Computed example of a mutant assay.
Amino acid sequence: MADLKYYDVILKPVVTEKSMTAMGEKKYTFYVNPDATKTQVKEAVERMFEGAKVAKVNTMNLKGKKKRRGMVYGRTAAKKKAIVQLTQDSADIQIFEGL
């Protein structure tokens, strides 16, 4: 298990059309540290965003894409994405307001 602090877990929010429509159901999507567990993601969201209460967390590991530059093949970095479901009485996450 990784020794991560709560402020190292969440890297950045995912801003796509699909994630924006899911916000109506209080589901927020973030890129997280690949070593983070669901428990660490839950703790990070509740500590970083005032009034947020997490009901559940779904995570998925995303492989890096194959890229080619001339004759050399390589891969982009792998990522981990987390979809955080908040409870109904929870406050909304403010960084997504106005998007």
Rank of each mutant, 00 (worst) to 15 (best):
D3G: 07
K5A: 09
K5W: 11
Y6N: 10
Y7H: 14
D8M: 12
I10G: 02
P13A: 06
V14D: 05
V14F: 02
V14Y: 04
V15P: 01
T16S: 15
T16W: 12
T16P: 03
E17D: 14
K18S: 13
M20R: 15
A22E: 13
A22C: 06
E25D: 14
K27W: 03
Y28V: 03
T29Q: 01
V32Q: 02
N33M: 04
P34R: 11
P34N: 15
K38A: 14
K42M: 06
K42H: 06
E43T: 15
E43G: 06
A44Q: 07
A44M: 11
A44D: 05
V45W: 01
V45D: 00
E46C: 15
E50Q: 07
G51I: 03
K53C: 04
K53V: 13
V54Y: 04
K56V: 01
K56H: 08
V57P: 12
N58G: 04
T59I: 01
T59E: 00
T59F: 00
L62H: 14
L62P: 03
L62C: 12
K63Q: 10
K63L: 07
G64N: 10
K65A: 09
K66W: 05
K67D: 11
R68T: 15
R68A: 15
Y73N: 07
Y73D: 14
G74M: 01
G74Q: 02
R75H: 12
R75L: 11
T76A: 04
A77V: 06
A78Y: 03
A78K: 11
K79D: 03
K79N: 09
K81H: 02
I83A: 01
L86A: 04
T87S: 13
T87D: 10
D89Q: 14
S90M: 08
A91S: 12
A91L: 10
D92M: 07
I93D: 04
I93Y: 04
Q94I: 01
F96V: 09
F96Y: 15
G98S: 08
L99N: 13
L99K: 11
